[in-house]
Amino acid sequence: MRLRGYRGSDADLLAGPWLPGELLGLPLADWPPLAAPTTVPPPADPGQELCIAPGLGFVRYTELDWVHRRARVEIGLHGVDGLDVLLKTVVAHGFLTLNLSRIHGWVTPLVDPPIGLLADVGFQREAVLPEATWLDGRPIDREIWGVVRND
């Protein structure tokens, strides 16, 4: 798999029923039908790197620090097939194409993400953020997962 650059025709891929900012944003089955979907803006400046995973969704490297070569990554997917390949591609793109040395993201344990797949590509749990976001009528914890190049 290879990520490709964003085009205006990809706009529909930027909204969906996943948690904002989630490292591995998968569609939540019980998303209320009248709740607004999560959206990210189309890329328009060097402060973010948003790529398209063909047939799956978007991968967004944001909070980019080009000097210290690190970024937070968030992914929004419309399907769940090929997650292992996608995650390998996300790490490889961050390290080899963007030349980053650290990638991190937010993981929300309550939505039962496939953390084994994150671990398989080198991500490690680094911290717990108590009551860091809101879901289903209550504050919930989030975690920071990160991977460092040459780790």
Binding site: R2, G5, R7, P43, A44
Partner: peptide
């Protein structure tokens, strides 16, 4: 050096 990963605005 990375043409196919560049977004439309950057191209």
């Amino acid at each position: 050096g990375d043409p196919d990963t560049r977004p439309e605005w950057e191209i």
